[in-house]
Structure formats: C-alpha cells, structure tokens
Amino acid sequence: MKKHNLLSNLYTALVMLFLYAPIAVLIVFSFNDSKSRNTWAGFTTHWYTDLFHDEEIISALVLTLVVALVSSVIATVLGTSAAIGLNKMNKKLRSVFMTLNYLPMVNPDIIIGVSLMLLFTYLRIEFGVGTLILAHITFSVPYVVLNVMPKLRAMDKHIYDAALDLGCNPLQAYFKVVIPEIMPGILSGFVMALTLSIDDFVVSYFVNGPASQTLPLVIYSQTRRRVTPKINALSTIIFIVVLGILVLNNFYSIRKEQQLRGKKGGH
C-alpha cells in the first residue's frame, strides 16, 4: 500500500514537472541579467522595466485587450440571444442549428482565418482593428452559445411564465428573470471568448492590418528577429494574471457552494 502510494505520488510529481517546467524556466529567465538563454548571470528586474518602455509591445497589449473586450462583449450578447432563440425552437430545427454552431469549433483555425481574409477582401473591408474584432466575434460566438445553452435547458421554464404572470412584458421577463438565472453560463461564455481572443494567433495573422498587431503577433515577429528576455517578462506577467484570475474564480465558487450547503437545513 505504502509503495503504491509512493509510486502514484511520483507519477503525479512527474506530470506536474512536465506541465510546469517550461513555465518555471520562463519565469526564472525573465529575471536573468543576461540575454543568454542557458546561463544564469545574476538577478535583475530590468527586463520588466524595459518591457514597459517598449512602445511596440505596450501598444500591442492595449490593442489585444481592446479587441478582446469589444469582441467578447459583442459575442456574448449575440451568443446569448442565439441560445435563447435556439432554446425556443422545436427539437428538429434546434439540432440543425446546434450542428451549424459546432462546425466552426471543430473547423481548423487556419481555415477560418483564410476564409475570413478572403471574405473581407471580397467585401473590400480595410484590414485593421475592425476586421480583427469581426473575426474574433465570429469564432467566439459558438463558445458562448455552448456555455449558455445548458443553463437555459436546466432552468425551470415556468419562471418565464411566472414573470409574465407578475406583470412583466416578454422583454422585461428576460432581463429581470431569465438573464439573471443563466448569468453563470453567460459569464463563463464571456470569459471563454475573452481568453480565446487574447490567445488567438492564427486567425489574427490573416485578418490584421499593418497598424493593428495583437500581442501574439508581435511576440511571434520579435522572436523571429531577436529573442529578448522582455518576452519572458511579458509572458510571466500574463501567466501570473491568468493564474490570479483562476485562483480567485475557484475561491469564489468554493465559497458560494459552502454558503449554499452551510445554510441549507439551518431553518
């Protein structure tokens, strides 16, 4: 038993090592006082200060965040409305549209990228922030639908009737009752759209304009010229921010669950 335990612990440790070793290296070398990628030359934070003085990176970061926020807000609105509409359809029609919804998700990014590029060219839309946002909305909407749909299906459909019964018109009923009820799904759809957008390289590569380089594109082009540890520093910051959001989110949902459980039966 003990031996078995040791083995399984070792296995877990190995998995963790493989997963996190690259990130650990990245973080360590972001503090390395040398441009070398394999020798340690002492501790420094100057890559971080350099980073914040690099106009190209900072403007790319701002652009990435703007594109991500705008596209995911729009995608969330579109996806949520789509899910509500789909939920009202009869079974046959719904399954047709759900399949259409899944298609872009399984479609390789490169095909989405190329096809969007061709479409924008055909429609003579100038490549830039606009096309980036449009493209990101396109690939985010299906994920929002996917996150909202289960919440709608699980919702007691009588609560919509109840809202009408209590004096709401259909629009009020959605905003006062249905939307709050499916909010967890909407939020997770929004977060997913946000991360997909920040993360995206392939699609953005095809639809960006000369003056609209998102962060992944800038990092890629910089690594092709010269790899500076600034990239390490930037990646470290992104990693820490994402980790922080995840931890907060988990902490919040655990606490909420405890609240629900702790209070139940207490009357």
């Binding site: 009588h158 109840a162 809202a163 009408l164 019964d165 209590l166 018109n169 009752v177 709050p180």
Partner: peptide
Amino acid sequence: VPPYKRNINTVFQRYALFPH
C-alpha cells in the same frame, strides 16, 4: 390578451420561484 395584462395571478406547479 397577454398574461401581464390580465388581472389574474398564478401559483405554478413546483412554485417557479426566482432563485436569484
């Protein structure tokens, strides 16, 4: 005439209270 314009209210099966 839609439900919200009728002077009638309903107690639904399984209550349909608003959980939020």
